[in-house]
Amino acid sequence: MYRSGHYGVSLLLYAPVGFALLLAGYPAVALLGGAAMLSLARLPDVDLRVPFVEHRGPTHTLVFALLVGAVLGGAGYVTAPELGLDPRVAGVVGAVVGTYGIVAHLVGDVLTPAGIAPFWPVSPRNYSLSVTRADSTVANTGLLALGVLVTVVAAVVGGRIG
């Protein structure tokens, strides 16, 4: 996937989480979580700029997702009091969103023929659904539009109910 496709997948997958946070009475956490998801949407592709790291290698794994989740969970817990948030909630949301943000990227890449090996280093097996090429303008734009639509609906409905 390209940038717009990864943003779309991130929005699409985060919408139910943001909706649940709105219903639970945590609008600030829902907003921060959404911003974090979008910020993480392209993080695994940092491997394109790191020498000696294969593209769709270690940064495209569940191990990397868990590592990012642990870092963001810790950061959420530590910074929560300064933001007026419950540290436990912010820590859990940080860990979930950090992990989920990377998983959303992996979902986008598994749609392409090149796929990913998400269980590396345990298994080198590559997974691909071969739904669309990474450079497909239709797929990337369509995913972005769908992600925005679902996010807006979740925000409006969740905001009214919550």
Score class of each variant (00 low, 15 high):
Y2H: 14
A28E: 08
A154T: 12
H105L: 10
L67D: 08
V153Q: 07
A65N: 05
L13N: 07
G94M: 04
V89K: 06
F119G: 01
L21G: 00
V93S: 01
Y7H: 13
H55F: 13
A20E: 04
V138Y: 06
P16L: 11
G162M: 01
V138G: 04
T132V: 15
N126Y: 03
L21F: 05
F119K: 04
G159L: 03
L32M: 14
V93T: 09
V63T: 15
A75V: 14
G34D: 12
R133Y: 07
I102H: 01
P81D: 12
R160E: 00
V50I: 15
A139S: 08
Y26L: 00
T79H: 05
L31G: 01
Y7F: 15
A15G: 07
G25P: 13
G147Y: 05
P87H: 11
G74R: 09
P27S: 01
L31Q: 00
S130L: 01
G57N: 12
Y2Q: 14
V17R: 03
V138C: 04
V148T: 01
T112C: 09
A155P: 07
T61V: 12
A145E: 01
V97M: 03
R125N: 08
G57D: 10
L21W: 04
Y7A: 08
I116S: 06
T99C: 09
A20L: 14
A95R: 04
H6M: 11
Y26W: 14
V96P: 00
G73S: 11
Y14I: 06
S10W: 07
N126M: 04
L32V: 08
H60E: 14
V103S: 04
A104N: 11
G158F: 02
L106R: 10
V107K: 09
P124Q: 12
V68N: 04
F64N: 09
A70P: 06
P51N: 13
V150W: 05
G25K: 07
V93A: 12
A24V: 05
G8F: 04
G73I: 08
L129N: 10
Y26C: 00
